[in-house]
Simulated assay, not measured.
Amino acid sequence: MTTRDLSTTEKFYSAVLGWDWRSGKLGEQYRFASVGGVPVAGVSAVEAMAQQAFAWTPFFAVSNADETAARSQERGGTTAVGPISFPPGRAALLADRDGAVFGVWEGELVADWEEWRRVAPVFVELHTRDAFDAAIFYAEVLGWASKAEGCCEVHYENERVVLRSRADTVVAHIHSGAVDSARDPAMRPHWQIHFSVADVAACIEAARDHGGSLVQEARDVGEAVLSDPDGARFVVNSQTAE
């Protein structure tokens, strides 16, 4: 995620999600967040620009960022930035065929992906116009449902595409409504980040106390969409993804 003010961002997410922060090899303008020693996110400071939208962007680990970007373009995706070097890795910012933005990262992250998936308090969800088309795009670009080491399995459950790790942990959802429902031409496809928390109400209160806001709350499912001081939206969820 990008932000105008690292200090404000650190205080906000520490209060709302209990994150700890550290600097890494990318310099003082880039900070890493973790919970209980488990890495969760990276945040970089950028100069504010007129009408700039700040948002959370999911990054997917790949073995080769250049080849992944090329596969995306071959399948109708676009490349916004990169691939460029960020020691100790290489990254690119891409968009799928419907315009949903995502990133790819080649390089050092975590030693054990299955362990990370088991304990990391996060999963991602793609809201798009055609879940099946999106699933095919990402499977071809990122190697989902392949025999590659560390890949995920793709399933169709409860009218949405569900991505599960080999350890059967849900890591992503893709949905566009019921199979027989009409597509919504006004919907802007996007990835949404979900953070698992113990107390949604406490997160809402902390967000308001630290310059954020409540965008939407769904009391029956223990979930709320929040906005940070820069306007970046994310979801807090008291239930494990299924």
Rank of each mutant, 00 (worst) to 15 (best):
F137S: 07
D133M: 11
E157H: 11
R118L: 09
A134W: 07
A100P: 10
A131C: 01
T68S: 05
T78H: 04
V154N: 11
A69N: 00
A50Q: 15
V154R: 02
A120S: 06
E157I: 14
L142E: 15
Y138T: 10
A145V: 13
E149L: 11
A53T: 06
D66Q: 04
G37V: 14
R31T: 10
W144A: 11
V104Y: 02
R90Q: 08
G27V: 13
V40H: 01
G18L: 11
G76D: 10
F102D: 05
A45I: 02
D133F: 05
A131Q: 07
A80N: 05
R129F: 07
T57I: 04
F137P: 08
E159S: 09
S23Q: 15
R75C: 14
V154S: 06
A131W: 05
F102T: 02
D66R: 01
A100C: 06
R129P: 06
R97L: 07
A33V: 03
S72A: 12
E74Q: 13
L26H: 10
Y30A: 15
H155C: 00
G99N: 12
N158G: 04
Y30M: 11
W56I: 01
R71D: 15
L94Y: 02
S44H: 06
A69D: 04
A53I: 09
V141F: 13
A120I: 03
G107N: 00
W105V: 03
V46P: 08
F102W: 10
F123N: 12
Q73W: 04
R71L: 13
Q51A: 14
G89Y: 02
V35R: 09
R117E: 09
K25H: 10
